[in-house]
């Protein structure tokens, strides 16, 4: 294994740890807003992870997935925030 490959593995491990921490916040809450923030952060981390995986898996297709995923996640977050704004927290 080359040094570059080792570094990429370290990066992927860190991403996995970040997603675990985010999931922990998503599960523990304590309230709906905390979960929403956790979900928002998770989607962005997932976008970064998809981009980081692309060169490793050797396909630029993952970048398209990352792009569409990021934009859709944004729309979803805004929609959920609207629901909170018009009532129905907790």
């Amino acid at each position: 294994m080359t040094l570059a490959e080792l570094l990429q593995l370290v990066a992927l491990t860190l991403f996995a740890a970040a997603i675990l921490l985010g999931l922990l916040r998503l599960v523990r809450g304590p309230a709906t807003p905390d979960r929403l923030v956790a979900a928002d952060t998770l989607t962005v981390i997932a976008t970064a992870l998809l981009a980081a995986l692309a060169p490793r898996l050797g396909s630029a297709l993952y970048l398209d997935v990352a792009l569409v995923y990021g934009v859709l996640a944004f729309v979803g977050v805004v929609a959920l925030a609207r629901i909170i704004e018009t009532g129905g927290v907790r």
Partner: peptide, 28 residues
């Protein structure tokens, strides 16, 4: 390649710090 991989690690580290902040901070 090496520099790029190093940047991946730095980027992942910041993402990890963000998630850690998500866990440690007292309010939403």
């Amino acid at each position: 390649n090496l520099l790029g991989s190093l940047l991946l690690v730095v980027g992942a580290l910041f993402c990890f710090l963000g998630a850690l902040g998500l866990w440690r901070m007292p309010d939403v």
